[in-house]
């Protein structure tokens, strides 16, 4: 048989417009432009201090971890609405175990992570085996974990444990005199681990395959059930870890912590260029999304005269713009 040459995929335009990395690049450039704007406008207020940049990681580390978990779920075409509640519950559980039960954080942390992962596992199990939309199952999770917070205590529990305090105050010095918090470092480690898992393990590729077409993945003989349950477990684990980082950041547990944070996480993932329909996106994009949302907050703080609600308005506008970009991109890809 002769060699049939197909000449490769449609050459012009394909590389740039249909490249799946394009949305990440768009978000990254947006970040650079916004940062440049801030540097120009707030030069006198020390915006260019390296610490301003590092603070983005310090202030949003927990969000990054939660958003990385959400990225796994969204890549399969699912959604996890329980993120904020699991974070809130983790802060309560941690504060209660440390303060009221006197357990050391080293014992409490694994418990909290296990509880979060198990919650995610249960939701994933229900979603897959009962064929229920992830939206509704994780919505149930949202109410369930928020309710559990109030079972522990109706009041906020502040943490005065010196070990926790020390950990929270620890500065990880960086060259140039700036520093990161432990939480920020943990979040970056999680990000790196997620990148490795998604791109260098069979599990990670299955996540993309399911997002591309669950039916195809099934017929190709891939273990779809296990993978789907696993992504919700990962998301539950990440939420609990985000909860621990949030506890360090705030040093208290409160039944009303992180209300609606799942929406920030989803917004970061989408602004980071991951398609809500699944199968396309990168955790690096999610990092860009988190940084952009964090930067909006910083810029509004630097401006000083604007109410913090402008953060929400800016996020809304941005999200809207990115969904439209995604839509036109997928339309072009299909057409």
């Amino acid at each position: 048989m002769s060699v049939i040459s197909r000449g490769g995929p449609s050459p012009h335009g394909y590389r740039l417009l249909q490249d799946r990395r394009l949305p990440v690049l768009v978000t990254a450039s947006l970040f650079v432009v916004m940062f440049g704007f801030g540097a120009f406008r707030y030069q006198a207020y020390g915006f260019l201090d390296a610490q301003v940049f590092m603070n983005l990681f310090i202030d949003n580390g927990y969000l990054l971890v939660a958003a990385v978990g959400a990225t796994f779920v969204i890549l399969t075409g699912g959604i996890d609405l329980s993120v904020g509640s699991v974070i809130g519950f983790t802060t309560m559980l941690t504060a209660w175990l440390v303060e009221k039960q006197g357990l050391p954080l080293l014992v409490v942390a694994p418990i909290a992570l296990a509880v979060g992962a198990f919650g995610g596992y249960l939701m994933g199990y229900v979603i897959h085996h009962f064929e229920i939309q992830p939206f509704i199952v994780t919505l149930a999770g949202l109410f369930f974990f928020r309710g559990l917070c109030l079972v522990i205590s109706k009041e906020s529990i502040s943490i005065s444990d010196p070990a926790v305090d020390r950990l929270a105050q620890t500065h990880v010095p960086l060259p140039g005199g700036s520093f990161l918090s432990i939480a920020a470092v943990v979040s970056l480690v999680v990000l790196a681990a997620a990148f490795y898992v998604l791109h260098y393990t069979r599990f990670g590729r299955r996540v993309y395959a399911i997002g591309g077409s669950e039916q195809s993945a099934l017929l190709m003989g891939l273990p779809v059930a296990g993978t789907k349950i696993a992504v919700y477990t990962v998301s539950g684990f990440c939420s609990a870890l985000a909860g621990l980082l949030f506890t360090l950041y705030i040093q208290s547990g409160d039944p009303l912590h992180a209300v609606g944070l799942e929406l920030d996480a989803i917004a970061s993932v989408v602004v980071g260029g991951t398609l809500l329909t699944g199968g396309s996106g990168y955790v690096i994009g999610t990092l860009c999304g988190v940084l952009v949302l964090g930067l909006i907050k910083s810029l509004i703080q630097f401006e000083g005269t604007l109410s913090s609600w402008w953060t929400k308005i800016a996020t809304g506008v941005l999200l809207f713009a990115f969904i439209l970009i995604q839509r036109t991109m997928t339309a072009r890809r299909r057409g």
Partner: peptide, 29 residues
């Protein structure tokens, strides 16, 4: 091979051929 091509459109040709059987060393593709 089914009528509706059952491949994952978002993955590369190489991955579609070998997914589930990717060459790995110590779990790394």
């Amino acid at each position: 091979v089914y009528q509706e091509v059952n491949l994952c459109q978002n993955l590369s040709v190489a991955e579609n051929i070998l997914i589930g059987r990717e060459p790995v060393r110590a779990g790394r593709i």
